[in-house]
Design a protein around this nucleic acid. Structure first.
Length: 560
RNA sequence: GCCUUGGUAGCUCAGUGGAUAGAGCACUUCUCUCCUAAAGAAGGUGUCGGAGGUUCGAUUCCUCUCCAGGGCACCA
């Protein structure tokens, strides 16, 4: 008996009750959502509790306790329910048979990697864009939170059945790229850096590599500076992008699509208009475009933006907004329903204009676009910069803290909460570090497996769920049963931190159980069904810990 | 000025209208001849920033207000 099954059983009971009341209850509909049960904090309140009676009493013209009594009487008859009691203002507290609860252990083991996956978001094609850092330098501190959160969000959405494409938008056109090109060329030629050049040693490194890989660059620069600039810029860009992609892989962050801004500026075959040109035409057809002061504008204020936006400047150059609009249309044309943008708080001014683009494109601004704004991360205050004026690169963080610990800590908090990380704590391999607490629980399940094999305890020799009666076993089973609901909730709310918090609770329940219930018999003791059944439970815990860590992009080692 | 996100235990933070508001850390004690003690057990801590409102019930929703972070370009 899972909480979902219990909820649907309660929904049926309530529907029956409503039907039996006739006219008084006309039009009242019950869904599983209404009868969802929760795990009470207090064990005396049973295994699962429902507040449905309190929610429906008013609409049915009765009082909560009376309705609760009626529901509880019938709930007690559900197969697998040991008792159903009413308490407080109208809670229905349900206790399951040990065997019915224990059945979960086998179910989880048999489902393995599939346990926790669901179809709540099935049929949805979602585009999830995050990081999208300029390819003019390495990824740093500021990008890490979105990398971790975005990748975990993609995994969680997929686990809920969504068809997700994770996407990185490369700003490889425009003034920043030109500046980058000049910086790289100067470094490659050993010239003094231009006035507005990118600072940072990485430019020097790129310059050295560019000089190596383009043997005649110096000569070319003397005869045709523009050609040399273009070659240096292009190669520098390729090298830098490869570095970024390499860092992301090391961080276990995967993108399905790296989308180049240049493709939005490029004309189509046979001189067809570029996507940006096509975009302004499409918006014009919809009647959202006007000209003023020599510039071309989009009337985004019609869609709640706080000011209209310039599409083409007076000097004929497209704004960044123009590319954003064309990019949005590309996502729409590629068949995505919901487009999710994961942005830092420093970009929060984008919400209005992005939403307006969606509206102008004829999309539903409520459902087709989601802009998630996250607060910035702060690591040991600002003091951590190694060199004054220098940023902390993702690669350095990975070397210092490790991918697992960094991913876990970044995924552990909701995106909109300001986050101050303590590097020493993230690094510590002790019990004040939740990532190790959770990983240790998993490693323990593996240790138990190894020892069980040696001791001759085998799952296939028996399973007697009614024997899982210890208090810590009920608690652990309850936690395992909650997992699918946790995944579905995390997906629906786009809050992967819920997975991390859940895993910490699960690890706690596992450790407490481990301390109380032995899987391997003591020396003189024969192997019995209790040991075998506990091995199922141990393995079920291992499965869920592994599945959950995977959603966070964190490894589940078999030994620590 | 306008927009936006926070304010919960000494610290770092959970808490999608429910029961006595939680976890970890820190502090004090216990528990390995027995599956990994990187673990477990026990001990107390709150003006949920403040004031109104909505209702059976508010840390949660609404309004006002105080404090803090971020944002308000024909920049990229």
């Amino acid at each position: 008996m899972t909480p979902q099954e219990l909820a649907s059983a309660l929904a049926r009971i309530l529907t029956d009750i409503i039907a039996s009341r006739g006219d008084a209850a006309e039009g009242v509909v019950v869904t599983e959502q209404d009868t969802q049960v929760e795990r009470p904090k207090n064990r005396e309140h049973g295994d699962w509790a429902s507040n449905a009676a309190m929610k429906f009493a008013k609409r049915l013209g009765t009082n909560p306790r009376e309705l609760a009594t009626e529901i509880a009487d019938r709930a007690a008859g559900i197969d697998g329910v040991a008792k159903a009691e009413i308490a407080g203002p109208g809670f229905i507290n349900i206790t399951l048979d040990a065997a019915s609860a224990g059945e979960t252990a086998r179910r989880v083991v048999e489902q393995g990697e599939a346990y926790g996956r669901g179809d709540a978001l099935a049929g949805q094609r979602i585009n999830l864009e995050f990081v999208s850092a300029n390819p003019t330098g390495p990824l740093h501190m500021g990008h890490t939170r979105w990398a971790a959160l975005g990748d975990s969000t993609a995994r969680v959405l997929r686990a809920a059945g969504a068809d997700v494409t994770s996407e990185y938008y490369i700003n490889d056109a425009g003034a920043q790229m030109d500046k980058f090109g000049r910086s790289v060329l100067a470094a490659a030629l050993g010239e003094e850096a231009p006035e507005d050049a990118y600072p940072g040693e990485y430019i020097q490194d790129l310059g050295r590599r560019v000089a190596e890989q383009i043997p005649g660059l110096g000569e070319l620069a003397r005869t045709d500076r523009a050609a040399a600039l273009e070659q240096a810029q292009e190669l520098g860009y390729r090298l830098q992008l490869a570095e970024i992609q390499d860092s992301l892989e090391r961080f276990n962050v995967h993108f399905d699509v790296f989308f180049s801004e240049r493709t939005l500026h490029a004309a189509g075959p046979d001189g067809a208009p570029s996507p940006i040109e096509a975009a302004v035409d499409r918006l014009r057809e919809q009647g959202h475009v006007f000209e003023e002061d020599g510039a071309i504008w989009v009337r985004t204020t019609d869609f709640g933006d706080d000011k209209d936006r310039v599409f083409t400047r007076g000097n004929g150059v497209y704004t960044y907004f123009a590319a954003d609009a064309a990019y949005y249309l590309s996502k729409k044309d590629r068949g995505f329903g919901e487009k999710i943008y994961l942005l830092g708080a420093d970009h929060h001014g984008y919400i209005g204009r992005l939403t307006a683009i969606a509206g102008a494109a004829g999309d539903d601004t409520e459902t087709d676009i989601t802009v998630l704004i996250g607060q910035l991360v702060n690591l040991n205050g600002a003091r951590l910069s190694k060199r004054a004026g220098n940023i902390i690169e993702l690669n350095d963080l990975l070397e210092w803290l490790g991918s697992d610990a960094l991913r876990y800590w970044l995924a552990r908090y909701p995106a909109d909460s300001p986050l101050a990380l303590d590097g020493e704590k993230v690094r510590s391999r002790s019990n004040d570090n939740p990532v190790f607490y959770v990983q240790y629980a998993h490693a323990r399940t593996c240790a138990v497996d190894r020892n069980a094999a040696t001791a001759g305890v085998r799952r296939e020799d028996g399973f007697a769920p009614g024997l899982l009666t210890h208090e810590t076993e009920a608690e652990l089973l309850g936690k395992l049963q909650q997992y699918p609901g946790i995944v579905a909730g995390a997906a629906e709310l786009r809050e992967p931190h819920r997975i991390a918090r859940y895993l910490e609770e699960l690890a706690g329940a596992f450790h407490r159980w481990y301390d109380n219930c032995r899987v391997i018999p003591l020396r003189e003791e024969p192997v019995g069904d209790l040991h075998r059944t506990r091995l199922w439970l141990n393995d079920a815990a291992g499965v869920v810990l592994r599945n959950g860590l995977d959603l966070l992009g964190v490894s589940a080692p078999e030994r620590l």
